Amino acid sequence: MTTLRERKTYRKAVLRSLYEAVERNRPEVSGATLRDEIRLPDEDLFAACTYLADEGLITVEWTSHRTPATVSLTHEGIRFMEEEEEADAPPEG
């Protein structure tokens, strides 16, 4: 069973990967590509995507095997990642 810290790390990795894809003009990512990029087992990817979709940060098209076929950030997910990026940026001046 994964710990809370691991689950949060997985969710951040999913969001980061999708945000980077948006920046490269790839608004939609296949579930297989996402899994390979962040190296998550299917059950952890399922849990992370389910949580983030429930929060309204991503949309997921599911396969019949409970794995994501395609995943993309919602407008709210992009705003969330932009806020994270601004918070992590060094102060200007």
Rank of each mutant, 00 (worst) to 15 (best):
G31A: 06
D88M: 13
R79G: 04
E61R: 15
A48E: 01
P27C: 08
L57A: 02
A87R: 14
L15G: 00
E85I: 04
A47W: 01
D36L: 11
Y10S: 01
V60A: 04
M81R: 10
I38V: 15
E43Y: 12
T63W: 09
A89P: 03
A21Y: 04
H75M: 09
G93P: 07
E84Y: 02
R26M: 10
E43S: 11
D42R: 13
N25P: 01
Y19Q: 05
E83H: 10
E86Q: 13
P27D: 06
R39K: 14
E82D: 12
A47H: 01
A32N: 09
R24W: 06
R79E: 14
E84Q: 12
E37D: 13
E85M: 10
E76A: 15
T3Y: 09
R39E: 15
E6H: 05
E85Y: 07
R7K: 10
C49I: 04
R35T: 08
D36T: 10
E55K: 14
E85G: 05
E20V: 07
E61L: 14
E82P: 02
W62A: 11
G31D: 05
P91A: 14
L4A: 10
L15I: 00
E84I: 04
E82R: 15
G77P: 02
L73R: 02
L34W: 03
H75S: 15
R11H: 00
T33I: 07
E83M: 12
R24Y: 05
P91G: 08
E37C: 09
R39W: 04
E92I: 11
G93L: 13
S72R: 15
C49V: 04
E92K: 12
A69T: 09
M81A: 07
G31N: 04
E20P: 02
T74G: 07
M81C: 12
A48T: 00
V22L: 12
L57P: 01
L34F: 03
D88T: 03
L15K: 00
T74A: 08
E83W: 06
T2R: 09
A32F: 06
P27V: 08
G31H: 03
M81L: 12
V60P: 00
F46M: 05
R11I: 00
C49F: 06
F46I: 01
P91M: 13
R26L: 11
M1A: 14
D44Y: 08
L57F: 02
L45N: 03
R16F: 07
I78T: 07
A13V: 00
W62T: 09
D54I: 04
R35H: 06
E85C: 06
I38A: 03
T59E: 15
A48G: 01
E55W: 03
T3I: 10
S17A: 15
P41R: 13
A89L: 10
D42V: 11
R5V: 12
D42H: 10
A13F: 00
T67W: 06
E55N: 02
R26K: 13
A32D: 10
R5S: 10
R35V: 03
I58H: 02
E20H: 07
P91F: 09
E20S: 11
E92C: 05
V71P: 04
R39M: 11
P90F: 10
R5G: 02
L57Y: 01
R24E: 13
P41K: 14
E85F: 08
S17L: 05
T74I: 09
E86W: 10
